[in-house]
Design a binder for these strands. Structure first.
Length: 147
RNA sequence: CCAGUCGGCUGGAUGGCCGCUGCCGUAAGGCAGAGGAAAGUCCGGGCUCCACGGAGACACGGCGCCGGAUAAGGUCCGGCGGGGGAGACCCCAGGGAAAGCGCCACAGAAAGUAAACCGCCGCUGAUGCGGUAAGGGUGAAAGGGUGCGGUAAGAGCGCACCGCUGGGUCGGCGACGUCCCAGGCAUGGCAAGCCCCGCCGGGAGCAAGACCGAAUAGGGGCGACGCUGGCGGCGCUAGCCGCCUAGCCUGUUUCCGGGUAGUCGCCCGGGUUGGUCGCCAGAGGCGGUCGGCGACGAUCGUCCCAGAGGAAUGGCCGUCACGCGGAGUUCAGCUUGCUGAGCUGCGCCAUACAGAACCCGGCUUAUAGGCCGACUGGCGCU
């Protein structure tokens, strides 16, 4: 188990792991990185350290925020389902293991074409990955210099 | 056929690929999976926990013609009364205004113990004084209405009818209606102003609540004894007795009551994240028969019909209906370039309102398009 390649994530396909608690959403919005895309924004934050598995082995987790401003109950449900389906069908779209993601949807998500939705989400995950890498290395450097 | 009134139904269909939740199955797999309003949370219940002693007064909230239906209701059905409409039919917050208080803008002479602007009549030379409430005028509303008599002019001043009030007869379970008699009329409207009368009413809600369960803080139950302060008496003390006076809880208050305050002993562990239950067989759906004007009831048969939990019931793509826009073509009508109908391609949209959260019965509100039934009025035909 310890020598397994980290690329082989558990549950690489199938139902995406979901964020279930309010505190996870708040953590992502307070500590997380954020990118904007047409129709939505994504926030991301590394998962909390008390997670059962090592971070690189944990599958990414996703939460969706669709406020009442965006649509009524029917429209909000549809937006959530389309986002879920995009993640499932696209095989996580390049989301990183060990990260929590919160997608904040806007009105356009309801009417945007499904292909565009997948495209924009993939782009966003890629941008988050590169920015997280840059910030992480910078933090490491700072820690080294401080010692 | 046109115009209208009332009521009901429906809420796209079908297929492919990839998925989600629950149940069944060893497995492969199979089966089921949002609404008429699931909504607003405005009423009524079931269910759960808490509180709950009795009597009186007060307060608060709700309801308000009668009878019935129902688990119940502010719902429904059948009636009554009033108002509207040519009619089918529709509307009514429909107890009490001779218990009291209050209000009735503007206009108007006057808005409630009536009053007198114009007018009418009488007297007078005139100013004016008196009578009057027919007519005019104001207003949402002007102190019964219409007619005849009467009179100086008028007036319930008198009479008839209608209305009103009181009493009675008959019919109806009743709201109420019918008829008779009496009274010359007293009693304007507003109670969705206060109010009065009658009836009803514990509180919170499935985040209710129950169980399983690391750590930390210390909690709960049962039993026994005891019960704050002051004064007086008895007693050596411990303590006992009597009187007075207080706190909190039971909507407030009064009376009679009750609980609560400390110590000791014994027993139980406690419950945040999480999990399980509550949580879907029910005032259940469908069909028949019988009873009832009806709401509905009785009975028989049959079916099992969502149970999620940051919350499943979906995503994408075809085909076809329906709809909309424009084109071509055929037919009909005539106001000779328009209208209507049918057919054939093309394009758009791929449906409106809207998503179960413990469960039922209602109410209210939203809703594209389509369909059906009953009835009323008019026109045409037989």
């Amino acid at each position: 188990m310890t020598t397994d390649a980290p690329a082989k994530l558990p549950h690489a396909h199938g139902k995406p792991e979901r964020l279930r608690h309010r505190r996870d959403f708040i953590r992502a919005s307070k500590l997380g990185l954020r990118v904007n895309a047409p129709g939505f924004s994504i926030q991301t934050v590394p998962q909390a350290p008390e997670a059962p598995l090592a971070p690189y082995q944990n599958p990414p987790r996703f939460g969706f925020t669709v406020t009442k401003k965006v649509a009524g109950a029917v429209g909000r449900n549809r937006i959530r389902r389309r986002l879920k389906e995009a993640l499932r069908a696209g095989g996580r779209l390049g989301a990183q293991a060990g990260q929590d993601y919160v997608v904040i949807a806007r009105r356009e998500t309801l009417t945007a074409s499904f292909a565009d939705l997948i495209l924009h989400m993939t782009e966003s995950f890629t941008r988050l990955k590169s920015r997280a890498g840059a910030q992480g290395s910078r933090k490491q450097k700072d820690g080294h210099s401080a010692r």
